[in-house]
Design a protein around this nucleic acid. Sequence first.
DNA 1: AAGGCGGGGCA
DNA 2: TGCCCAGCCTT
Length: 358
Amino acid sequence: MRDLTDAPKDLNAALLDWYDVHARKMPWRVSPEARKAGERPDPYRVWMSEVMLQQTTVAAVRDYFHRFTSRWPTVRDLAAAEDAEVMGEWAGLGYYARARNLLKCARTVVADHDGRFPADHAALLKLPGIGPYTAAAIASIAFDLRHTVLDGNVERVMARLHDVHAPLPAVKPDLMALAEILTPTERPGDYAQAVMDLGATICTPKSPACGICPWRAPCRARARGTAPDLPRKTPKKAKPTRQGIVFIGQRTDGAWLLETRPETGLLGGMLGWPGSEWVDSGSALSETGAPAEAPWDALPAEVRHTFTHFHLILEVRVARLDSAVTPTRGTFVPAQGFRPSDLPTVMRKAFDLARAHF
DNA sequence: AAGGCGGGGCA
DNA sequence: TGCCCAGCCTT
């Protein structure tokens, strides 16, 4: 019985042929002509894009990538940035530990690696915010080393190609083994991007375009009609709902009363409005958390927002603060120094609700 | 091994 | 409204 894994050369040749024609144009890639001339992409830009792309779509990343690389063109520029500048520029992209680790990583590369990303998978893996996927992506894409990327796209492609029905995440090591078999010695960087492009544009989660897939002939899920149902996943549990109160105060001189959240935990290191604890719906709403003595006015509407693992309903209270007031928490940010875009999305929603009041 | 950690797009 | 999805880190 001839197995798929006996013919990896035919498979990745077909994929690379497809990629040479259909590669997605992305800001962190070099043009096909430059690539044929032997030019490699800038490891700094590859790293930046891959960190932004963790759990995030290309469409959401594009503008952020342009802003970051324009403002900080090299890893040395980024390493020299202030924490608050980087966190503010990341605001709205989510998973804020990535931004904290981005800065840590840049500073480590400058301090320990002379400002150059190491062309070595194990060394990359030691850097903050770089896990198995990102290390393999940088090693292959930036340095053309033979490493296998296994992201959600590749998991899906492998599960379908081999018609694997066992559910994720338990089956992940098996999918990794299958992906490794197919990884070529020639052009491993292009191959890595090709598999991921295939997953993003052809082998999509719903209604895959099997008819135009370069792997339609060998694909076992296509033959059995199971492709749209793969990969299977173990069910996730329901999100609880929590509730809380935020206080949006503006001093008579226009300054806003804000606070920087603790480094760790939800929205860690981000700017936000002071407020109560967030408690499970059903338990009593805590009335604590007001950052200053003032006649707080409750807004008639509330903010609804969903995080990774819970829903949140936020009451918003607003007040004009006397210039003599001394806040018990937070600091005043002058009006001209405050950009709503520096806020994470839930805090920006609260501000959007409140700004009509001022 | 399991859980914390955003946000946008879609039906 | 609820469901989907492009990892890493901590415990």
